[in-house]
Each structure stands twice: as C-alpha cells, then as structure tokens.
C-alpha cells in the first residue's frame, strides 16, 4: 500500500509527523505545518510505494524558502519601483528638453524679427539718403 509520510525537521533531524494514504492531503498537511506559529526548519513528504523500492521525497519546504521568496518578492518590487522612477525621470527630461527647445525657438524668432527690422530701417535710411542726394544734385 502506498503511503505518504509527512516529516518535520527539528534540530537537524527528520521526525515523522503524520501518515496519509493520499498525496494531496499529505502535501497540504506539510504546508499547514509551515504555517504554524512556530514552524520547524523544514518539512517534507516521503512517498513509500510499499513495493520494496526506496522511499522518495515528493515535496519539501524549508523556513528559509519562505524568507528567500519574501526577499525575492521585495527585490522584484524594488526593481519595479526603480524602473517606474527611471521612466518618470526620462519623461520629465524629455518634457524639459521640449520646453527648452520651444523657448530657444521663440528667442531665435525674436532675434530674426529684430534683424529684419534693422535691415528694413537700414534700407529705408539708405533710400532716403539717396533720394535727398538726388534732389540736392538735380534741383539744387
């Protein structure tokens, strides 16, 4: 008869905890053991086929697994936060760059207008000077 033995690791030694004839129940019982207020260092489920073949471990969970999983989750969360901040900073930089570009374009346009005005004034004053000279030479 196939049996599934839940074993707890206490003080470095595996001790029998309960025996089941169903794998799912045994694995769930093992998981329950690790949810206790004071869980053992580890728990495992050993399957004994009862046919003379050596027993084999079909499930194993250690307290440290929980810590590792928690640390892994925290690291993933941190990475997500860092990535979000990086994206936000990049967007802010792009926005600032766009604003600076627009300001530069406006300043350049202003400069162009001033330059054009100066040229117009120069041309006008030259034309007026030339006209005065012509009047002076021809009319006297």
């Amino acid at each position: 008869m196939m049996v599934f033995e839940v074993q707890r690791n206490v003080g470095g030694q595996w001790r029998s905890y309960a025996l089941f004839d169903e794998k799912t129940l045994a694995v769930d019982a093992a998981k329950d053991v690790m949810k206790q207020k004071r869980p053992p260092a580890a728990v495992r489920v050993v399957q004994d086929s009862g046919d003379g073949s050596p027993p084999r471990t079909i499930f194993r969970q250690a307290s440290v697994d929980g810590h590792n999983e928690q640390a892994h989750r925290q690291r993933l969360e941190l990475e997500r936060e860092v990535e979000a901040m990086r994206v936000q900073r990049k967007q802010e930089r792009l926005r600032a760059r766009a604003l600076a570009g627009a300001a530069r374009a406006r300043a350049e346009a202003r400069r162009q207008w001033v330059f054009l005005l100066l040229r117009v004034l120069l041309v006008l004053s030259g034309a007026l000077g030339a006209l005065g000279f012509v009047r002076y030479e021809l009319i006297g």
Binding site: Y17, A18, L19, D21
Partner: peptide
C-alpha cells in the same frame, strides 16, 4: 494498531 505502532497521526480514506 497502525497508529499505536507508528506513534503518529494516521489519516485513511477508503
């Protein structure tokens, strides 16, 4: 008898 021999809780379904 199985429980007394193994000295652990035993769960059986049948």
């Amino acid at each position: 008898p199985r429980v007394l021999a193994k000295r652990i809780p035993i769960c059986v379904g049948d």
